Amino acid sequence: MEKVIVEAEETLSALESVFSKFDVDEINTVPFKGSWTAGQLTEHMILSNSGFLQVINGPVTETDKPADLMVAQIKKDFLNFNVKYDSPKVIYPEDKIYHQPELMQNLKQIREGISEAVKGLDLTRTCVAYELPGYGFLTRLEAIYFVIYHTQRHVHQLKNIYNTLNSN
């Protein structure tokens, strides 16, 4: 359990750290054709991770499978940077001007919420509030690893955005 606590903290802190490097004018700059801005990418992470936090803290049932059954598949899917995924509409960021302090505050609240969940909940229970397409109902442990690997994927993308905007 200590491993998941450390991984979640390190990953969510990395997202905050990379995002904090952007200058105010860079947050809403499209770095290259087909890309989100840093603000949009961060908003996508806030929408996704806050949704998963609600699922993790939501209704659960007994689990009839190993609690970590889908973790390896989630990792394989999200850390394959050669594959591009389309975001579900519900977590698709608006095309608007984003403000760094507000986004940073939201990231911090989500990191703290995930930390509390990992430390205080039975991670072997199955979350029943949302069935994830392609994965089914996840255990709390799998849901936390979804947050970790999905966030790691987007930290990678955020670094690419940063490097593109600062390569001149």
Rank of each mutant, 00 (worst) to 15 (best):
H156S: 07
N168H: 15
P59F: 05
E94M: 10
Q40W: 05
D86S: 11
V18M: 00
E9D: 14
Q109F: 09
Q40C: 02
T124H: 12
E62N: 11
K3C: 00
L12E: 01
Q100G: 01
A8S: 12
V18Y: 01
K96L: 07
A14K: 12
L165W: 14
A8M: 07
R140W: 11
N160Y: 09
E26N: 11
V147D: 03
K3F: 06
R153A: 11
E116G: 06
I148R: 11
A38N: 12
Y130D: 02
F146I: 00
P133T: 07
G58K: 08
N163C: 06
Q109R: 14
E10R: 12
T11R: 00
M45Y: 11
M45V: 15
G51H: 08
Q40V: 04
H154Y: 10
P133R: 09
T164Q: 15
A117I: 01
L12A: 07
F146L: 12
D122Q: 05
I74N: 05
W36F: 14
G34W: 05
P88R: 13
I110G: 03
G113M: 02
N106D: 07
D95G: 01
H99C: 03
K3I: 15
F32H: 03
I91F: 13
K96Y: 06
T124Y: 01
V71Q: 10
K159A: 02
M70V: 11
V18R: 02
N163E: 14
G134H: 05
E2C: 03
K76A: 09
R140P: 11
P59T: 12
D23W: 00
G58N: 13
E26G: 03
D25K: 15
F52P: 01
V60Y: 08
K84Q: 15
L138H: 11
V147C: 05
I46V: 14
M45Q: 12
T139W: 06
T139Y: 13
K75D: 02
I110E: 08
V71H: 04
L103N: 13
E142Q: 10
H99M: 08
E16N: 04
D23K: 08
L121R: 12
Q105N: 09
F19Y: 10
G134S: 05
T139S: 13
T11F: 01
F19W: 00
G39V: 12
E26T: 01
F146M: 06
I144W: 04
P88S: 10
R125H: 08
N28W: 05
T11K: 02
S35L: 07
L53F: 09
R140M: 03
I27Y: 04
E94K: 13
F81R: 10
V155T: 10
K159I: 11
E9Y: 12
P101Q: 11
I148F: 09
M70N: 15
R125T: 09
N28S: 07
A117G: 07
F19I: 02
A72R: 09
I56P: 03
R140G: 05
E16D: 15
G51D: 11
I74E: 12
Y149T: 04
Y85G: 04
E131V: 02
E2I: 09
G120T: 15
V55I: 14
I74Q: 10
Q54V: 13
V18P: 01
D25G: 01
N28A: 07
N57I: 02
